[in-house]
Design a protein around this nucleic acid. Sequence first.
DNA 1: ATGAAAGCGCTAACAT
DNA 2: ATGTTAGCGCTTTCAT
Lengths: 327, 327
Amino acid sequence: MQDIADKLGLSKGTVSLVLSGKARGSRVSEETCRKVRQTAEEMNYQPNEIARSLSTGKSMSIGVIVTDISNEFFGNLTFHIQEQAKKYGYTVITTNTNESLEEFNDAVTNLLNKQIDGIIFVPVVGGEKVAEKIIKRHLPVVQVDRYFPDMKASYIIVDNYKVSAEITELLIKKGNRRIAVVCYDIDLNALRERRQGYIDTMNRYGLLDTTLIKDINYEDQEEQIKQAIIDLKNNPDKVDAIFFCSRRVFITGVKHMHREGIKIPEDMEVLCFDKIDSFSIANIPIHYIEQPIGEMGKKAVDILIEQINGANDIKQYVLDAEIKHSI
Amino acid sequence: MQDIADKLGLSKGTVSLVLSGKARGSRVSEETCRKVRQTAEEMNYQPNEIARSLSTGKSMSIGVIVTDISNEFFGNLTFHIQEQAKKYGYTVITTNTNESLEEFNDAVTNLLNKQIDGIIFVPVVGGEKVAEKIIKRHLPVVQVDRYFPDMKASYIIVDNYKVSAEITELLIKKGNRRIAVVCYDIDLNALRERRQGYIDTMNRYGLLDTTLIKDINYEDQEEQIKQAIIDLKNNPDKVDAIFFCSRRVFITGVKHMHREGIKIPEDMEVLCFDKIDSFSIANIPIHYIEQPIGEMGKKAVDILIEQINGANDIKQYVLDAEIKHSI
DNA sequence: ATGAAAGCGCTAACAT
DNA sequence: ATGTTAGCGCTTTCAT
C-alpha cells in the first residue's frame, strides 16, 4: 500500500480510502481513484486482511461448531451455512465437538481468540457454562438444531415434538396399532421431544405399551439396536411398525431387521427421523421426516449477520419439518 | 496485556514473553512468571490472535477447499483434516467450490488475503492458473483426491486405475463376463482412470464391448443413468454386472435397477466406487471400493505442516484403496 | 532479569 | 481532495 502511494506521490491514507471502497462521493477525485486502482492492479496488490481486522476490529469470519461434519445432517447444514455466509462476504471456520464438552470448550476459546465476529453452534450436553462465555463477550451467537433452554440467545430449531406426533398419528390412521420407537437415551431436548411426541400420541389413542419403547445407549448402540430389533420381533403381540429417532439408528436398525428376516413393509413398516439421500438403494417404502436443513442454515446466518450489524433482539425460530414417503 | 503489566509494575514485553511461553530457561524469573500467569488468570486475559498474527506473520490457520462438504466423501475428508489440524493447533477455514472454477478462484483469493499458512485443496477442472497463484506466493499447498499433472506441488491421491482394474478382474474371476460401467464423462483424472482401469482389464480378458460403457453427463445425470440402466437391461447379450464409478451414480443407478425390476445379485451384480455408510439398508450384496479417507486427510495435513515448518520437498503419495463386500 | 521501542499493514480521525 | 498521525494488540530486538 505504501508502495502504491510512493509510486503515485500520494499518501497511504488516500490509497487505503480508494482500495477499501470508501472513496464514495466527493472524498477522492475520480482521477486519483483510477490511478490508484490501476497501479494496485499492476503491482498485484493483495490486501492483508489480518492487518485490516486488527485495525477495524472485525475479522469478517464467523465460527461454526457442529457435532461432526462427516455426518450427513451436519455436513448439509454446514454447507448451507457456508454458502449463505459467502453471500455476505464472510468466511467460515468450522470445528467438530464430537459431542464432547471439552472439545466444545476448546472450540469456543479458539474462536473467541481468533476475534471471530459471531458463532453458530450446535449445543453439547452440559455446555451452558461454555456458551455463557460467548454471551458475556457480547458476541453475536445463534444456536442450531438444539438449544439451551435457560440461555437468552437466538436459536433456530425444528419442532421435533410436533412432527413426531404427526408421523405417529399418520401411521395409526393407516391402521397400525403396535408402533415401536427406537431412540437414543441422550439428554438432548431434540431427542427427548421426538420420543415424547410419539409417546403422547400413542397414549392419546390408548395404544401405549412400554415394551414398545427402546432406549439406546449411544456408546453401545450397535449391540443394543440389534437386541431391540430381536426383542420387537419376538414381542408376543406382533409389532406393526418401528419409528427410528435418527438417521444412524435407522440404518443400523434396518440392517438388523434384514438380518432377522423381517419383511418391510409386510411384517413391519419403518419410519425414519431424517432424510437419507440413499434411501432409494433400499427397495422398501420408508416414511421419513425431512428437516428444512437449507432454511435452518440460511436463516442462522441471516440472524447472525443481523446481530453483527447491530440488532439486539434475540430471535427464536421453530420450523416445521415435513413428513414424506420414499418409493 | 498492558493492564497486566501495569498492575504488576512490569513491561508489556515481559508479560508477552511469559504468556506466549517464551520465558524458557533463564529469561524471566520464576517469581515473575508465576505472578503474570496468576494475574492473567484473574483478569481473565484472552490473547488476541489477530494481533499476534499480524506481528508474527503466521495466522495458525489453514484453508481447505473441497467440492462440496455436504457430500459424504468430502465431508469425511474434511472431518479428518480438521481433526488432524486440531492436533497441530491449527484452525481450518473451509470453502466449497461446487466444482466451479470461479468459486475456486474466489476461495483461493480470500484465503490468501486472510494470510492463511497453507492450503489443502481438491482441484477443479481448469483451475491450474488459479493454483499457480498459491505456488507463486510460496505458500505451502497440498492437493487431495485429484491433482494437476503439470503442477509442481504435493498431492495425495488414491490409485484409481489400479483398484478399478482389480475389482473388474475380481468380478471376472468370479465368473462374470458381461460387466458394464457407468461413469461421469467429466474430465478429471480420477474419473478417467477408474474408467480406464475397467476398460484395460476387460480388454485383457477379451471381454470389452463398447455397448457396456455408459458415459453420463453430470448435469443430466438422473435421466441419463435411468436410460443407461434400461439400455443395459435390454442389451441383447445379458449383462452380468454393473460398475458404478462413484457414489451418486451408484445410488441413482441402483434405484433405477429396482424400478426396472432387475434383481440384485441374481440378475446382475453391482459394484460401487466408494463406501456408503448406509449400504446396509439395501438388503443386497455389494462389491465396493473403500478409499483410505482418514489416511488421506491426516497425511495431507502432515505434509502441509511439514512444509509450513520449512520443508521444501514436494511429496506425492498414491495410496491403495481396498476392495470390500457388504453383507 | 526486565524495560523500551519499533513495527506488522491497515484504518480513521483530524488537519490542511 | 489529500496528507498526517495515532493507534489496533502483540512480538521481538536491543538496551540496561
